[in-house]
Amino acid sequence: MMMTDAILTIRDIAQALKLGEKTIYAMASEGELPAFKVRGQWRVRKVDFEVWLSRQAGDHAASAADEMADLPPTEPLANSSQMDLNMPTVAHETHAMSDLSERVPLQELHRRFVSALDPTSVRSHSAWEVKPFELDLAPPLPQRLRVYMFNATRPPGGRPLGEHKIQLIAPGQQRGQRASFDNGDGRIVLLVGYAAEEDVFILWDAGLYADFAWSRNVQVKAATIVQASAGKLATQDRQLRPPSGRPVAETVLAVKPRRLAEAILKRMELARERLLRE
């Protein structure tokens, strides 16, 4: 017979991780939690949650090989010896992730992206909950766009203060699998992070992120976020050092919503320059 506490709710997990329910909802919507829906409500099996929690350190270590070599290593969020996963309820299990910044649900990410553009520029778009999010735009913006959008958060440890990151998980990608962005149908692909607390969009070069591991970390420096928060079109130059192959230069962009269209055009310009160099 199934135990009464074998299924956890969004509220249960929010209490366990000391995070807001909106943050947990966003994590479930983006596939970061082993959650499933019952009549539109998110639920997580307690055993799956415990396994997920205990594997966080291992996942960060595994993804480190895909990150830039000049970045400091990711410290584990916590280890299993610090967590009492045998408690009858989850309310007092851990507060190891309490420093994570605000997250918003996937639908809201897409709404904020569209709201940042001139209404006359957006001809049509896919349903809010669909990922990747596809838009048809008016010139001079790219007419066919495919956006992979993620919450950009401040990890709780092992990173420079204020640095933000996203975790790449493609639709349908499972733990241990590798994935790539869909470049088909003539659509231009954008890799976008959104720092909700600062209301800043970050645009990486999607063409440099192929065949990535599940939950790969992609970062942006705190100084870049600060410059964008001040209203600038902020840029950050860095070197990607893949496990095999020569280093590749990338320019990361960050902007407030009113300059998103400008950043999209700049991202396209930089991508063209990179392709010409190759």
Rank of each mutant, 00 (worst) to 15 (best):
F181R: 08
G31P: 10
R103C: 07
R43M: 11
L17S: 15
K266I: 13
V189G: 01
P156H: 04
R154W: 12
L208C: 07
E129Q: 11
V252D: 02
G172W: 06
D12S: 12
D48L: 03
R39I: 01
V255Q: 15
A26T: 06
R272C: 06
I13D: 07
L8G: 04
A35M: 14
K232V: 03
S29E: 15
M68C: 07
L135H: 11
A213W: 10
R175Q: 11
M3T: 12
A57N: 14
K131R: 15
W214C: 14
R45P: 02
V47D: 12
V252C: 05
R274E: 05
E67I: 04
T153K: 10
A196D: 05
F150G: 04
V189P: 02
A271L: 07
N79I: 01
L240H: 06
S29K: 10
A195Q: 07
L191R: 00
Q143W: 01
E93G: 01
G157W: 09
Q15L: 14
A64R: 14
R267E: 01
N86T: 09
V248C: 11
T89M: 11
L8Y: 00
T251E: 02
K256T: 15
V38G: 03
P257G: 10
A62N: 14
V114K: 08
K46Y: 02
Q107Y: 13
M27L: 15
M3I: 15
L191K: 01
D12H: 03
R238T: 14
L71I: 12
I169F: 03
G176S: 07
A35Y: 09
H110W: 04
L240R: 05
L191W: 06
G184S: 12
Q82M: 12
E75N: 05
V189F: 08
Q167I: 04
R43V: 01
Q239K: 13
S115N: 14
Q143F: 03
G40V: 10
M268Y: 00
L141Q: 02
A62W: 14
G184D: 12
L137I: 10
K131D: 15
F150A: 05
A16F: 00
L208A: 02
M1N: 08
A179C: 13
Q239T: 12
R238N: 06
L233N: 12
T153Q: 02
Y194S: 07
S115E: 14
L19N: 04
L203Q: 04
E262C: 13
L168G: 01
G20Y: 03
E278I: 03
